[in-house]
């Protein structure tokens, strides 16, 4: 036994191990972000400018003012999608390349906990980005909010997050198998997802079936419901009623969380069988 390491006095398992793992993976990310803070400029300030560009497009074509609010809200929600995409899913690919993935697998820790830890570790940046876009954007562009129901708004946001991170964990499982293509797939899930989820316009305009298909990504219904709940004319531009969207989000949350658990276990097994966990295809 290595004399440098103290013996484990209190063994963790079950929920305690799960939360220890979450914290253990979140910790280096939180500390790392404190050590080098250039991300505040690049990950918070610059995306705000990018969102503003879309606002000015609407101004240039004389769109009704609520569309400006749609862009600001959509821009804020992109932060969560980016967190899933780059701080969770594709991070697994990076961990594989660095050699950490195999260490995760041979430890008794749950992969879901590790993924959750990655997400929570990046949440400071994500929340800062989302709040900055929402707050500064609303102030700069004089966005008027009329909240119909705070409870429904809270429910929609919470359910959207649960479903979204469930989806993120499900998709992350695929990254256990992929190699360099994972990076490119994550890249591909940006503009096309912004398009189909109606990040900058009401998703209803895509047509019923396209919008229904896009609803598999929780951002679609989450955004649509939030817009209906906080803008005066939001309901008129909504895709489905808020109640139906909440129901669908509940179903998506359950399906994605259970799916993530099983898919992670299945793909981990598959990746071990095929020897893909330590594979390093340059």
């Amino acid at each position: 036994m290595n004399p440098m390491l103290p013996p484990i006095e209190r063994r963790a398992s079950g929920a305690r191990l799960f939360w220890m793992t979450v914290w253990g993976r979140a910790y280096p990310r939180v500390v790392g972000m404190q050590r080098e803070r250039s991300w505040v400029f690049f990950d918070v300030f610059l995306p705000l400018l990018s969102v503003a560009a879309y606002v000015f497009v609407y101004r240039a074509i004389r769109a009704p003012e609520e569309y400006v609010g749609f862009v600001v809200l959509g821009g804020a929600m992109t932060a969560f999608w980016m967190n899933i995409l780059w701080s969770m899913s594709s991070q697994l690919y990076w961990e594989k390349e660095q050699g950490n993935l195999a260490l995760y697998i041979i430890s008794p820790a749950s992969m879901m906990a590790i993924l959750l830890g990655m997400a929570i570790g990046g949440l400071v940046a994500t929340l800062l980005r989302a709040v900055a876009i929402l707050w500064i954007g609303s102030w700069l562009f004089q966005v008027q909010y009329t909240v119909v129901s705070f409870w429904k708004l809270f429910a929609v946001f919470s359910l959207s997050m649960v479903a979204l991170y469930g989806l993120g964990m499900m998709s992350a499982s695929l990254f256990l198998l992929f190699s360099r293509e994972a990076w490119h797939l994550a890249n591909l899930a940006m503009e096309p997802v912004y398009l189909v989820t109606g990040m900058y316009f009401p998703v209803k305009n895509l047509g019923f079936w396209a919008a229904a298909g896009a609803s598999l990504i929780p951002l679609t219904l989450g955004l649509d419901a939030m817009r209906q709940l906080i803008f005066v004319n939001g309901a008129a531009l909504g895709f489905l009623s808020v109640e139906v969207e909440i129901l669908v989000l509940i179903v998506l949350s359950v399906v994605f969380l259970i799916g993530a658990r099983y898919l992670l276990a299945f793909i981990e097994k598959l990746a071990i069988q095929e020897g893909r966990l330590t594979e390093n295809r340059r």
Partner: peptide
């Protein structure tokens, strides 16, 4: 990727 990026603007423009 580029087509989706352009399509966002096209749809925004078309709606209004």
């Amino acid at each position: 990727k580029p087509v989706a990026g352009a399509a966002i603007l096209v749809i925004m423009y078309a709606i209004v």
